[in-house]
Amino acid sequence: MKMLMAGSGALFVFYVLVHMYGNLKIFAGVDAFNEYAEHLRTLFTPFLPYAGFLWLFRVLLIAALVAHAWSAFYLWSRARGARTTRYVAKAAARATVKSKMMRWGGVALLLFLVWHLLQFTIVKFNVGSLPAEGNPGLLVISSFQVWWVVLIYLLALVALGLHLYHGVWSATQTLGWAGNAAARRRAKTLGTVIALVTSVGFALPPLAILFGLVKGS
């Protein structure tokens, strides 16, 4: 169960890194971004139909998401069942915000994901002012010119960073790759680096757009 958690988590880590790489394309201009979006859909054609790889990948991600959330829920309910009488006083020795926040942070990320997909993938509604019909790059820019959208994203990225920080190290432990002090330090460092890189990497485009460094035309 925990390995499912770690494995699916690892897939997400890989995915967010790729996703971030894509997002950063916006700095190369709207066209480059759109080209990238199109490229994702034509990858491995003609072996796969148009958007075939993308759908394969999406299916995989959805499966991983279900697995990740389900195993999280399972572990959570098992933990509740393992201590049905609570302590009157409980002081944590070192459980930090990040590990306690794994569950609630995960739930927050899930909610954010729904919003995020509705906005950019499924409905593609536009809360901004630029004409973005059929132009993903412009849609992104148009959206992030709105301050509260950026705020939602930034909050989500903080949650993502914390989730990754503990998640990466936790996964190495669960998979048995942190067998000694040095390996454990490396795993923690890796967790920190991935968390920082992704949250900063994702935060750059919206901020740049909000402050007008990237424009729609």
Binding site: K2, L75, R78, G81, A82, R83, A93, R94, A95, W169
Partner: peptide, 9 residues
């Protein structure tokens, strides 16, 4: 018993 989530307590 509950499962481990690598908290370290």
């Amino acid at each position: 018993f509950g499962g481990c989530t690598n908290i370290g307590e």
